[in-house]
Each structure stands twice: as structure tokens, then as C-alpha cells.
Design a protein around this nucleic acid. Structure first.
Lengths: 126, 126
DNA sequence: CAAGTATACATTGGATTACGATGCATGTCA
DNA sequence: TGACATGCATCGTAATCCAATGTATACTTG
């Protein structure tokens, strides 16, 4: 019963694409940027990030190019593709309707609730 | 790459508790109520619902009582406990900060972005 | 200059979760 | 009588996140 980490599930590709939409970046930088934008609320671990990047590349959402940096470190710079852009749009709207749905449920019963059954049950268990 | 169903992960206990907060109910009814409140955006399958109910009962968040209905069907009516109520409050606030974080990341870079690295990378890949 | 920290890539195994499939039993309605 | 909805439940599969671990380089601090 520790759903905190579970909340993230399914959102990783969307977050990565959202960062890449604003410009090319390498894996480590993407993780940093997500943490920064979310005020450290969202922290990406390597075990989460790299599999996600590989899957996105495999599916043609992003494309990575190896770069030899002057210092000597090798970096893989990722670019978002057209498919990635439209996928991001689709994911963003899915996220929006999802949050709306959750909020409606958490918010409580609305005025249209047929509360007869509920009231009867509440009475019986009083 | 079909994260739709994954979005739900981690939210099931919260949704169940939110319904139960407004009154006792049996499993099937909880599923119906969640669908109704979310305008059918959220659909609960038995394979999701009953394990969640059992886990919540095991952890003392809810308590179930078997009822013999006049018709003959046996129902298990669930009540939320005090622990369940405070857990729900905690979960609700976690959900709120989580959506805020995701929205910030998806929304794009804010004005405080130090975009030097990004601009250099964008130039190099032009 | 040695040691620690940060950068940057990556893999593996475990744990959790949602869901489709399936089963059983009863009540209702045409 | 047969189809369908209600209502409980379990099992196996697939997906996902993350801690742990590994390699290697650069920078910083005592």
C-alpha cells in the first residue's frame, strides 16, 4: 500500500516527450529538466529513464545520435520526431481527461446522485 | 506503448475510499458508482476491484460485513474506517501535488529556464 | 594530490499493479 | 425456458517503476 510511486506509471513517455518538444537533449539532462520543472516533485531514476528512452526510440518517437563531447564523455542526444509530437498531443489530452475523471470521483457525489440505496445502507449500518 | 490503462495505477484505493467516504456500499456498487461519477471514463473490472478491496480490508482501511439479501444473493457491504478516512485525505493531497507536478512538466519550460545549453544543442542540430 | 562528488551511460531483478479470462450462483424478463 | 444482469471471486499475464550495481570521466575540496 504505497501508491506514491505508482502514480507515475504510464506518464514517463509523456514527460520525456514534453521535455524534448522544447529542444534536443541527452538522457541525463532530460531527467534533470523534469526534476527542475516539477520542483523536485518528480525524480527520475536511471532504471526508469533509460528503458523509457530506448522504447521511445524503438517506436520512432525520438531519435538518438551519439556525440563525442570535447571533454571526452560520450552523450546520446535525443530529438523528438513528428510521430513523437503527435503522440505527445494525444497523450496530453488523455492525461487531461484522466485527471478530470479522477477529480470527479474523489470530489464526491454530485447532485444527480440517486442516493436512495446509499441512504438505506447508511441507515442500516448506523 | 499503450499507457492509458497504466494511468490508473496507484489510484484504485483512493477511488474506492472516496466512494465509501459517502456511505457504505458493496463491491459491485462501488464499481458502478465510480463509472457513474467519472462519466464512464473510469471502468473497474472485477480483477482490479476485488483484490483492491481485500487489500484495503487487510490494511484496516475498510471493513466488510456479509449481508443476506432478501432475494437470496449474498453481498459484502464495506464501511470506511477512521484509518481509511485519514488515508484518503493523505492520498487526495498527494494526488493534487502530483497533478500539479505533471502539468508543470507537460506545460513546458517556464521563464526561469536557463536555456543556454538547450539553445546551443538546438543550434548544433539545425 | 588524494578523495569525494557530479556527470553520464547502461543492465538486472524484484515488487506492484491492472486486467482479461473464467467460474459459480441467483434473480428478472420476454 | 433461455438470455441477460447482478454479484462474488481467483488466476495468469503483461507492463512498469525502481533499487542496486557497474563503468568511466571531470571537477572540487581538504
Amino acid at each position: 500500500m504505497e501508491p506514491d510511486r505508482e502514480l507515475l506509471k504510464g506518464n514517463t513517455p509523456t514527460l520525456v516527450l514534453a521535455v524534448l518538444r522544447d529542444g534536443p537533449m541527452h538522457g541525463y539532462g532530460i531527467a534533470r529538466e523534469i526534476e527542475r520543472r516539477s520542483n523536485n516533485a518528480l525524480k527520475f531514476k536511471e532504471g526508469t529513464l533509460y528503458p523509457a528512452l530506448h522504447a521511445l526510440e524503438r517506436d520512432g518517437m525520438i531519435s538518438g545520435v551519439w556525440r563525442k563531447e570535447p571533454g571526452g564523455r560520450d552523450r546520446k542526444i535525443y530529438n523528438i520526431s513528428d510521430a513523437g509530437r503527435s503522440f505527445l498531443v494525444e497523450r496530453t489530452s488523455a492525461w487531461q481527461s484522466f485527471t478530470t475523471a479522477i477529480t470527479s470521483v474523489i470530489g464526491g457525489q454530485d447532485e444527480s446522485t440517486s442516493s436512495t440505496v446509499r441512504e438505506r445502507l447508511a441507515r442500516e449500518f448506523k
